[in-house]
């Protein structure tokens, strides 16, 4: 016999409790949102580095092509 307890329904192989794994889930979400901000938004409508435009200019074509408003 295995020590594994069968799930109540065949559909629930694993249920990840959000409270127990909050560190990884929140960390990943935060990481993703920061990237999203720098690729799509920074140095356009708002800017964390003041009037510098290096981030904006570097990812400029990606910003247009990924659908973000620009210019």
């Amino acid at each position: 016999m295995s020590s594994y307890s069968p799930p109540t329904s065949a559909a629930t192989p694993v249920v990840i409790t959000v409270s127990a794994s909050a560190r990884w889930l929140l960390g990943a979400a935060l990481f993703a949102l920061v990237l999203y901000y720098f690729i799509g938004l920074d140095q356009g409508a708002v800017s964390v580095f003041g009037s510098d435009t290096h981030v904006h200019e570097f990812v400029h074509d990606a910003r247009h092509f990924l659908g973000f408003p620009c210019h």
Partner: peptide, 28 residues
């Protein structure tokens, strides 16, 4: 270069968010 770095980082961000959504949906 810029367009490549931009799209790959965007993909990484979306992949991470995708996994968060996946983990929450799993079994629910």
């Amino acid at each position: 270069v810029g367009v490549g770095v931009g799209i790959i980082l965007f993909g990484t961000a979306m992949g991470a968010l995708f996994a968060v959504g996946y983990a929450i949906c799993l079994g629910r």
